[in-house]
């Protein structure tokens, strides 16, 4: 978890921090700044004035509970910064119901689309799907095809585990980094 305190020096660079009696707009601006910066807590203290801003959704919590912002499986530890940077203020919360804080779901990892294209669950029109909910899959196993420009890309799972949820309908368009499957890692 990132935690930083703005020192007096850093604060001077921000107009809104110069005035000890901040108005609502300045505080809003500061909250926005904190959200963008990716830090989870800021304490600002001047004479007769103290302001503490905490981003409740800590980096780790986001990673495990919000499928939409989950980094690609193994990158979890490697790249926390971009994760924290983008989605703090209005993350796509719609995709993460309150119940997702449940301990079981906290373990789930998303397989995401590496490219813009069309998502196919089957290898061909009249074929069986590559995987179904409940299937145990192995690392390297093909889980779907993403097609773009008639380039057919077989997407292989980077982890072994059980398919918990399929997040996209067959033959629908997908965006870069869009979660496709939720996996309960083995």
């Amino acid at each position: 978890m990132k935690k930083s305190k703005l020192t007096q020096n850093q604060a001077i660079t921000l107009n809104e921090l110069n005035n000890p009696t901040m108005d609502i707009k300045e505080i809003q601006d500061l909250i926005r700044f904190v959200a963008k910066s990716g830090v989870t807590e800021v304490e600002l203290e001047k004479e007769g004035f103290k302001l503490v801003i905490k981003a409740e959704r800590a980096v780790e919590q986001q990673v495990v509970t919000v499928p939409a912002v989950m980094p690609q499986t193994v990158q979890v530890a490697a790249a926390p910064a971009p994760v924290a940077a983008a989605p703090v203020p209005a993350a796509p919360v719609a995709e993460s119901p309150k119940s997702s804080t449940h301990a079981d779901e906290a373990r789930y990892i998303a397989i995401k689309s590496p490219m813009i294209g069309t998502f196919y669950r089957t290898p061909g029109p009249d074929k069986d799907p590559f995987v179904k909910v409940g299937d145990e899959i192995q690392k390297g196993q093909v889980v779907c095809i993403i097609e773009a420009m008639k380039l057919f890309n077989e997407i292989e799972s980077e982890i072994s585990g059980k398919i918990v949820k399929i997040l996209v309908d067959n033959a629908s368009p997908v965006e870069y980094d869009q979660p496709l499957f939720l996996i309960d890692p083995a």
């Binding site: 093909v142 993403i146 380039l151 057919f152 890309n153 077989e154 292989e156 799972s157 980077e158």
Partner: peptide, 13 residues
Amino acid sequence: MLIETNLQGNYVR
């Protein structure tokens, strides 16, 4: 032509 690839994450095998 028709291209078929195998991807793991962002990596083209």
